[in-house]
């Protein structure tokens, strides 16, 4: 009975998780009329698969899609890296040192940093637009990397502070006793031990940048367009070309999935076990 209930729950969850992906996959091989008629579920039975969308991607739309794809990979990879590196320094400080500004202490400082993410991004976007226009960063790669790094920092600081404060300070002390200076202590001991946290923070940042629509919509218009913007642009002139959107969507799953697969190796949660009594 328990087993049946468990399987049923799993089935429902699986349906929610898998069906949209399946639907996107078959939609990428449909023609517009198969999409609006239907619902057609099984390729070859309900409808005849076509390569129309892939031909478009390889042909007419190629340059624009490649541009968006490249920009998205670049922004996500670089800004997440920067957010993790800068965030690691901030987190180390918050985890290891005590700060006091009048009545405010570390936890207030942490809250101040995280509070950057409490407001909806739309609040910031108009001001950002004005600032970027003023300094000439609109539609530039540098500008987008900057804005995504800024946007992801609160998240990485938050995750890494928690992670680093779990690393026993004695292990750092041991490295000092063993003859390693501050920089080597961090490089040889703190970084490897913080690796699972950094991998997780990197992934979450990467996903956010990859899927961001709002910031890219407001701050780019040609050279620095990201994939979500390109997808929208491809459909904006006429009725939504779901077959094309789905095909690009399938491609868009690949980079974050790759990032997740690669970083999964570093996410060993038990990394701290055995260090201290």
């Amino acid at each position: 009975m328990d087993r049946i209930r468990r399987l049923a729950l799993l089935g429902v969850w699986g349906l929610f998780a898998i069906f949209p992906v399946y639907w996107m996959a078959i939609t990428a091989f449909k023609e517009q009329r198969d999409i609006y008629q239907g619902p057609f579920v099984v390729p070859g039975v309900d409808f005849q698969p076509t390569l129309q969308s892939w031909e478009y991607i390889a042909g007419t739309g190629r340059d624009q899609i490649l541009l968006g794809f490249g920009n998205s990979v670049l922004f996500a990879a670089v800004s997440s890296f920067l957010a993790v590196v800068i965030g690691a320094f901030a987190a180390y400080g918050l985890a290891r040192y005590k700060y006091r500004f009048g009545p405010f202490t570390n936890s207030d400082l942490s809250f101040l940093i995280v509070s950057q993410r409490i407001m909806p991004p739309i609040v910031a976007v108009i001001a950002l637009f004005a600032m970027f226009r003023f300094v000439g960063l609109l539609d530039t790669h540098f500008g987008m990397i900057l804005v995504y790094t800024w946007f992801n920092l609160p998240l990485t600081v938050f995750i890494l502070t928690d992670f680093m404060s779990r690393i026993p300070v004695e292990i750092e002390h041991a490295a000092a006793i063993d003859g390693y200076g501050k920089f080597d202590q961090i490089r040889k001991v703190m970084l490897p031990l913080a690796m699972p946290g950094m991998a997780a923070a990197y992934l979450l940042s990467f996903f956010f940048v990859w899927n961001d629509f709002l910031l890219a919509l407001m701050l780019t218009f040609r050279d620095a367009q990201t994939l979500p913007i390109v997808i929208t642009a491809l459909s904006a002139q006429m009725e939504p070309r779901w077959w094309l959107i789905s095909a690009i969507g399938l491609l868009a799953i690949i980079p974050p999935a790759l990032a997740a697969i690669v970083l999964d190796r570093f996410m060993e949660r038990q990394v701290l076990r055995g260090g201290i009594r």
Binding site: A174, G179, L193, V271, G274, G275, R277
Partner: peptide, 20 residues
């Protein structure tokens, strides 16, 4: 003078091994 320049060896009560 920081520990790394004192050239001391120490066994910690809490062990403080490098788990990685």
């Amino acid at each position: 003078i920081p520990p790394q320049r004192r050239n001391v060896a120490m066994a910690f009560e809490s062990y403080a091994l490098y788990p990685h």
